[in-house]
Design a protein around this nucleic acid. Sequence first.
DNA 1: GTCCAATCTTGTCAGTGTCAGGATAGGGTG
DNA 2: CACCCTATCCTGACACTGACAAGATTGGAC
Lengths: 192, 192
Amino acid sequence: MDPKPYHHGDLRTALLASAEAELAEHGIEAFSLRQVAKRAGVSHAAPAHHFGDANGLLTALAAEGFRQFLAAQAAREAVAEQTPRARMIAAGLGYVDFATARPALFRLMHASDRPAFDTPDLGVVAKQAYDHLCAGVAAIAPGAKAADIAAVWATAHGLADLMCSGRLHSISGLPTAERDAAITDIMGRALP
Amino acid sequence: MDPKPYHHGDLRTALLASAEAELAEHGIEAFSLRQVAKRAGVSHAAPAHHFGDANGLLTALAAEGFRQFLAAQAAREAVAEQTPRARMIAAGLGYVDFATARPALFRLMHASDRPAFDTPDLGVVAKQAYDHLCAGVAAIAPGAKAADIAAVWATAHGLADLMCSGRLHSISGLPTAERDAAITDIMGRALP
DNA sequence: GTCCAATCTTGTCAGTGTCAGGATAGGGTG
DNA sequence: CACCCTATCCTGACACTGACAAGATTGGAC
């Protein structure tokens, strides 16, 4: 109940939440570490202790993003028809779900130099996401070639990226059911 | 021959070239207007006269990028078999050509908030690029639906974006002929 | 020859990331 | 209980950035 206890308690988590909020409000190009600290109610140098520097914070945030990304795919796969093909399409729907629900985070993960992917934390989850894709394709066609993986990935990623920056209103503006049907149609074309 | 004439002559063009070089070297997130000015050999406030502010410069640069983008597609289409389907695939190859040749510019055009797309200069060329895509799809199937356009766009854009950030070595690492064949294969799946 | 508009410079301001050093708290050891 | 030690957080400073204001320089129109 103290208005400002010296020790925050869980500043690391609070900073990650503040950072994502700042990212969502002002975009990554106007991202300011000092604003993040101000939002969390701490001094401008407090984040340094937990994340090293600004890129460290963004790296941790991107890793958290990849975990939510995998969760979004898993959620779609859980309610999908349990065939390799339907599961792969569900993963694509989850891909798009995440991108449209958290566009700022999506951009941080896929179009920014600031997160350090050679870090254990982020590197592991990023590889995990890629492996998940490969496994999905392999389940459909055991003899799948590199082009098959690329086709599926590019289609899902292209849809997600375009919608995330609001450039596919013809799809994203549709009612949910029709939107999902359109994505299912498009994803289906890429599958081996 | 003067080492430093007060009037540059064509500073606007020089600044655009410097800006692209800075972008390519340090990425958009470390983009600095003062570094651009220094590279062009002028004072830090000189760009303001030609572009207003930093985003104005990036807007002009993005517009220039879209012109080169359209040129890259046209170059591929010119040497392609003159059928609607082959031309559309050629446009996809041009899409990827541009993204891999100028990744920094590609990112500026597709994953940045800084260029102002509601500007006449940039707005026109961006719409021109989109219209070119729609025309290509319509030439293949006169009754093409929105999903057909989205499928083609997403595939080309996804391939380009993933390669531009170095995440599709299985394709981009191929010898030119095989690389083009793989892209042709993948693009072909999306066409109506 | 004079004036004007375009062009470029210098100087300044608030805001930013990072570093160094100091303050505070909580938990263990004697 | 007194002590210290480490993690945590703050204050202060530095160089750098984008933007603005005001002045200097240039080429050309009249």
